[in-house]
Simulated assay, not measured.
Amino acid sequence: MSFVSQLRSAFRRHWRHYLAEALGIAFFVTCAGLLTTLLEHPASPVRQALQTNDTVRHWLMGLAMGLVIVLIVYSPWGKQSGAHINPAVTVAFWQLGKIKTPDAVWYVLGQVAGAIGAAQLLKLVLGQLYAHPTVNFTVTQPVPLPRGEALAFAAEFIISFVLMLVLLVALHSKRLKELTGWLIGILLALYIVFETPYSGMSLNPARSLGSAVAADSYRGMWLYWAAPILAMWLATVLFRRLYHGEDLPCAILAGCGPTASSPHSPGEEPPQYPDEGKE
């Protein structure tokens, strides 16, 4: 069977999972855009009330977006697809053999489409509010310094590596696997508060691309793809060494172990995690 045929076959069987990925990242991008506008635009009453308190605004943004990722992970659509909503996460799970190549391709395409679509919708609805320099389409760009790109690359690499390693260790643990979404939410909140000044805090190539397309500004875009993907891939290598090649149960951020309300109940086929013998 040709690869194109495999893509078609995978799409027919798993299109709901790809749609779930697109919806998940679209929701994330939409929340990021709305919250940034609410907290940073000069016309916002919240911004005016917290005019001189940058720290409070940063913590509000971090906590809110942390809760957003928790909501996505444990939502029906998050459990449907595994809640990757990030090409770097999908590539890492693909490298671990938890998702087959056709599914991984569709996942990444869905993530990119969802991020671009959500950013374009925000641009259409919010207009100049979204374009204002304090919001700036929520673009992630290196700081304007002589070695700004190197600093941003290093920052993105470190936060991506730590996040993926925490994710893998938690999913491997019987005690922590059901808390994986909360752990990721906490890390995301801390990253937004403390790491944003160094790279804009992306972690997510698709999210950065969606904002860049809306702003028509692609400065440093290469690093927002290269650093997270490379870092998360290396995290999988370290994970295998730490656990001496033990297999990871699944690529579902909410944890495995289907419940009565889970889309992965008996009879409901998830994407290839992995599913051998079917093409």
Rank of each mutant, 00 (worst) to 15 (best):
V70P: 03
V70Y: 01
V70A: 04
I72D: 01
I72W: 03
V73A: 06
Y74A: 01
P76D: 15
P76G: 15
W77K: 15
G78I: 00
K79E: 15
K79N: 08
Q80P: 08
S81Q: 03
S81N: 02
G82P: 00
A83F: 03
H84D: 04
N86T: 07
N86M: 04
N86I: 03
P87N: 05
P87W: 03
P87Q: 06
A88Q: 09
A88T: 05
A88I: 04
V89N: 04
V89K: 03
T90L: 02
T90A: 03
T90H: 01
V91T: 11
V91W: 06
V91F: 10
F93K: 02
F93Q: 03
F93L: 10
W94T: 02
Q95E: 07
Q95W: 13
L96H: 11
L96S: 12
L96R: 14
K98Q: 12
P102W: 00
P102G: 01
D103N: 15
D103K: 01
D103E: 15
D103R: 03
A104L: 06
V105K: 13
Y107D: 02
V108H: 14
V108T: 14
L109A: 09
L109T: 08
L109I: 10
G110K: 04
G110V: 12
Q111H: 11
Q111M: 09
V112I: 14
A113G: 07
G114A: 10
G114R: 12
I116H: 10
G117M: 12
A118H: 07
A118G: 07
A119S: 14
A119V: 11
Q120R: 13
L121M: 13
L121T: 15
K123R: 15
K123H: 15
L124T: 13
V125K: 06
L126A: 10
L126I: 04
L126D: 07
G127H: 09
G127V: 09
G127L: 08
G127I: 07
Q128K: 12
L129Y: 13
L129S: 11
Y130G: 04
A131L: 12
A131H: 15
A131S: 14
H132F: 13
P133Q: 14
T134F: 09
T134K: 14
T134E: 15
V135M: 01
V135E: 01
N136G: 08
F137D: 00
T138N: 06
T138R: 05
V139R: 06
T140R: 05
Q141D: 04
Q141P: 02
Q141F: 04
P142F: 05
P142T: 11
P142W: 06
P144F: 07
L145K: 09
L145M: 08
P146A: 06
